[in-house]
Each structure stands twice: as structure tokens, then as C-alpha cells.
Computed example of a mutant assay.
Amino acid sequence: MSAVDIAGKSAEESFYRLLEQYREDAAYFVPDNARKVIAQYGKATKYVVLGTKDFGAQFIAALGDKGTALHVVDDFKCHRGEQFWGVDIISTDVFLDLVKKDPSIVAINSCRYDHSKRFFDDLCRRHDIPCLNFEQAVRVLDLNGSLDYRVADWGPVIADRADGFVALSKRLADSYSQETLWRVLSFHLTCDPEWYLNVARQYCTLYFRSGLLSFTEHEKFVDCGASIAESTTGLIGTTRGKFDRAWMIEPDSINIKTLQQFLRRYAGTELERKISLHPYAVGESRARVPFNHVGGHGGSILPGGDEKPSGMVELRPVDEIIDDAPTFIKMDIEGFELPALKGSIKSIQAGHPKMAISAYHRATDLLDLPAFVDSIEPGYRIGLRHHTEDRWDTCLYFY
């Protein structure tokens, strides 16, 4: 694999070049030394996961019979005798001893944050250890079929619908949004996070500090996927508590307890009457659906209907939950943003609210979400920002 010149051309020009390379050989962007080991040892290849993060868990769960997850490296946890998803945790020193003796080992750098990623990347370079990041591993081992859609390889969709992404670039309202689009897509083609890191904004800029939206003292905020109240807290901070209404909509039973505690904080204050909690998932129509209650940001509707009744939640359209025309709608609901928008048509058409809609859960979101909004309420300007140092939190802004 030859090095990719991130700064040598415009982001758009680079995207076209990378797309051509991807179409010629999708594995072009996977390091040669790792490809050779996998080609030589096949299903006998051993993988050592670097870091105890979500991507490592996803890799171990998806690997199946395509290899063996031998160990996980975490210097802070290795002395506790713990396991990570059924795999023993070892230290960096033990890992280095192993790779000296066993040529069938490939490292998987599963770290989310730049500092940790670079630590392990540098370690593997210095010791000539074949190493893949999570996205490279998914591609070279063809794991899409056994992965959660939220961490799938976008490459096939980008290659198949490239004309749609080009059209979207022309629809975006500002040059920063266009640059963000090309760099996010280039990451998904190359599996190289340097592409989006050159345009990423801090997580604290998500929703309220995008540079695209403005807020008044009369906001009516629909918080779909209220999670642990981060977004409603952002509204309170941005408006200094001066807003008209906030509907926190959240189905995860663990998060609901957190949100109830959050509301108790404002008991007896003016904010108490302004903020309401609604324990629903949001979608196109009423239903009862299975839900994975995990707390934090990861809970999601499950496919199928064979879950235990305790895991079921009520699905409601936004149009049936809120009782006033909103001025701002935010959605971060783990890949169900499009059905939720379909259940919000009346609310959107009633007041043309500004919207912040997550567009990173499904490979098709960046195309399907703007197309739907344009179909029901023409006239929006559209912006795009990426708000973290990993693949999460690419957000579409309608204003």
C-alpha cells in the first residue's frame, strides 16, 4: 500500500482519486505486511486486540471462524486477571514477547482516541508488527455480514452511489460542509482517520456550537435520543435557561432513571415546568418494538420481535408526542433517524424548525436524510460537521 497524500490536492480531487483506487482494489488501503500474514495463515491467523474499547468488542464478536482472538492488550487492566469479551487481557510487554515468537499474529488497533491510536501504531511500526485498525480489519476479513450496521464498512455504498454524494456536495450550503463531506467519505474509502481528523471539531461543538445555528430565548426543543441529558443541558447552557419548552424523548430504561434524576435537580424552579420526559422510541407510526437497554449512547431498536417483554418499548411518532410547533429538533437515535423524520412531518411543516440530525449510523444516511427533508419541506440550507476524533458524530444541520 502506497502512502496517501492527504494535503497534496483538494479534498474533492482526492476523493475522486481514492474512489478510483478503491474500485480497482478495495484492499489497496490495507497494510501489505498484514495482508501477507492473513493470506499465508488464513483462518489460522491469530489476532491481538490493542485496547479494551467498543471497536475491539465488535471485532471479537464478528471474527467467528475467520481467525482466533488470542489476547487483548491493556496495561491498566492486565494485572486484575480480567477478560474482555471472553479473551484474556495481557500487557504490552507480554504482547511484544508473543509476536517475536509467532509470525501468525496480526494486531488490531481498536482504540477510539487519537493519543491511544498513535501509541499503538508507533509501537507496531517500531517492532515491525503487522497491524490493522478496526476499519481495515473489517474490510480485509469481510466482516460486514456479521457486524452491527453502525460499524460497517461504507466503501461499497460510496462506490455504488458516488453520483449521489457528488450531488449532495453541491446541495451543501458552505465550503466547510463540502470539505467535511469529502473528508468523511475519504476516511470511509481509505480506513484512514487522518482524513476526517483534519476537519473534525471538538465534541463540545455538537448541535449548539456548529457555527451554523442560532438560538433565541423562545426555543421549543425536541430532544430525540435524550440519552443522559447532554443535549438538553446544552440548550440550558446556550440559552442560559431562557427557552420556552424542551421535550426529552428517550426509551432506554437505564437512561430514563438518569433523566429522572436530572429533572429532580430543577424541582421547584421555572425550568421544571418547561422540561418533560417521554419514555418512547420515535418512529414513523405507533408500534411496540424490542429494544437493547444499555444506558449511555448505545441503546437501539433491535431487529425482529422475539425479545422478552421486559425489553420492549413503545414507539411513537414525534407528531404525537409533542403538543406545540418546535423550533429545534435534534435526533441521535442509532440509525432510526429516517423513520423518526417520517413521524415528524407535521411538526417540521408547521414551523420549519432548525434541525441537527445524526448521519453516521448507516452508510446511506448522508444521502437519504437530506433527500427526505427536501421532499417534505423544501427551502432548508444544509450544513455538515464532524464532531469527534473517531468515526462517530457526523451531523447534518438543516436551517
Results as ranks from 00 to 15, higher is better:
S10D: 08
R209G: 15
H293K: 09
A152I: 05
K9M: 06
A340H: 01
V99D: 09
A363K: 03
A152T: 06
W247D: 04
F134T: 06
T216L: 10
M1L: 00
G81C: 12
H386W: 09
Q58T: 06
Y266H: 05
Y399A: 14
S175V: 15
A69L: 14
G304P: 01
A267Y: 02
W154Q: 00
D65K: 15
A281I: 01
L206W: 09
Y149W: 08
A173D: 10
L172H: 05
F262C: 02
Y16V: 01
I129F: 11
I382M: 15
I228A: 06
S227L: 08
N133T: 05
A162N: 11
A137V: 04
Q40K: 15
N144P: 01
S358I: 02
I357E: 10
A39S: 09
K53H: 14
G164A: 02
F55T: 08
R171G: 02
N198Q: 14
A159S: 04
A350S: 14
S146Y: 11
I382G: 11
E217R: 14
V87S: 07
F398V: 13
D324H: 04
N33F: 07
R288P: 04
A39G: 08
R80A: 14
A371N: 14
L63S: 07
K100G: 04
G81D: 09
